[in-house]
Design a protein around this nucleic acid. Sequence first.
DNA 1: GAGTAGATATCGCCATAGCTGATAGTTTCT
DNA 2: AGAAACTATCAGCTATGGCGATATCTACTC
Lengths: 298, 298
Amino acid sequence: MAISTPSLELLETFLALAESGSVSKAAQILHRSQPAISERLQRLTELAGEPLYYGMGRGVRLTAAGEAYLAPARRLRDLKREWSDMVQRRRQLQEGVLKIAATNTVANYFLPQYLVRFRQDYPEVELQLRGGITDWSQYSLLDWDLFFLEEGTPMTGLPPHYEASPWLEDEILAIFPRGHAFAEKPKLDLADLASEPLVWREEQSGIRQRILQEFRKIGIEPSIRIEVNGVEAMGTAVAAGLGIGFITSTALCHRPDWAIESRRVGDPIHWTLYLVAPKIPYRSHTIARFLEYLNPAK
Amino acid sequence: MAISTPSLELLETFLALAESGSVSKAAQILHRSQPAISERLQRLTELAGEPLYYGMGRGVRLTAAGEAYLAPARRLRDLKREWSDMVQRRRQLQEGVLKIAATNTVANYFLPQYLVRFRQDYPEVELQLRGGITDWSQYSLLDWDLFFLEEGTPMTGLPPHYEASPWLEDEILAIFPRGHAFAEKPKLDLADLASEPLVWREEQSGIRQRILQEFRKIGIEPSIRIEVNGVEAMGTAVAAGLGIGFITSTALCHRPDWAIESRRVGDPIHWTLYLVAPKIPYRSHTIARFLEYLNPAK
DNA sequence: GAGTAGATATCGCCATAGCTGATAGTTTCT
DNA sequence: AGAAACTATCAGCTATGGCGATATCTACTC
């Protein structure tokens, strides 16, 4: 004989009966009519196979069987409340996880200000920031809530429910050591730079790809002689006089200490950072809220 | 914003999805059509307020939110199973309580054989036998599953969902010391006894009331000079020669060691023991089964 | 004891939640 | 690019469960 379990509603009804001591009062508590509750309790009795209470003219009283079922019923109710609490906490962002993946450049120079403000408002949300990603193909993109693509990086293979949108537009500046002859000029041309020794970022760098693309526009294929890893290395290399480098203006603002100067290049060279996030219907509360912080305008 | 909790069915659906990895498979597991499950999951998502999974062409995958809800959902399922198990155990009498109240006479001489057999078959049921009840009015009858009334005891004030039915019919015998002149007679008349010294049981005794009733039938109101408490005292008092006593034949059979003899009295005098139990729709599994043991014929 | 107030069970009706089958719209694999 | 696998949506229907009215019962009171 199969035993079908009563619904939570049935158990709530039973508890209301047990705690109020009468079917009518239980009906009031649950905002139902008395016959409705009466019927529910009959259903419950049916499921238990034995009577759980008996009427006494004034109210009802639980049988031994009823008393026995009281404890598990209460535990089920408690667990149900636990669920509600969890929904509540997640809605109010008192609980949750936010997993972000980014390159070192983005993680170090673009994101921190947003993360700090978000964390102040929602300290309970667990922030997982993974920087230093160079090759997206090595990661399962589905493991991340948010990630960033630099212009010049291929955008193929995105999971279908994610979408990429331009997030920040920045300018790429040329940097050179203090005292370099370029300091005389208000702005530089790409053609000027082609004859100079150039310091390049690593191959996966969006900046590098973007600059190469500009060179190709004017028919130049520069040779890569000096290659450094990351923004830091770029700064020190250029300051040391290894050559001319390229850097986003945002990153540069963070390091006024470097002994370098910067100038605009070309038209100038704009560079866009793309934000990849789940499409709207797929966003958790956490993601949705954090995106508001990232795009206060929208 | 009110948070309504999903039903257990919804949670089972969610778990089936999580554990099978696809809506269709979950539908198979739950023996429902695929659209039904799809709709259930949408309802669940609605309740959570954020997506719990996303489709990927082949099956679905849980979001971080989905993973977070997995644990409480599992706990709820476990508790649900616990309930089912409890129903099962109670049905099979692997769990339960049976509370019986009786007079000493019934508890000591009539019930033990039934209790022993029941206990052998259902050792898990907790038997609570309360003997020595003399005055029912002092107890809340509702606290007992079963109790016994001796003929001659008033049956008023029974809770309405209980019913009394004749359980055992026994004969009341007169007892006297070995060597008494009554030993000559094959049977005795009440009138013979009226002139003898009589040993009486305590006032609440059903036997005493029954005998008095018989005396009154023939117009005799015997005086109560010797009163003893309980069957044991009756046996020893009569053996010692204090007078003629009355005892049920069943009780007598248990004490062949007493130095007494017995004879039928009157027509003879029958005495009925009534069993009081909840009416059929109010019987727990335990009560119902034990009654089968008490009335193997019926 | 009879009457009455208070409480529960039953009945008929009705709304609607939820299931089914068909179909359209995706994504993945070959 | 085509086929297979899967999910979402839609229209229609069934039947569960709620409501109001009423019957029935118990307990209290005069």
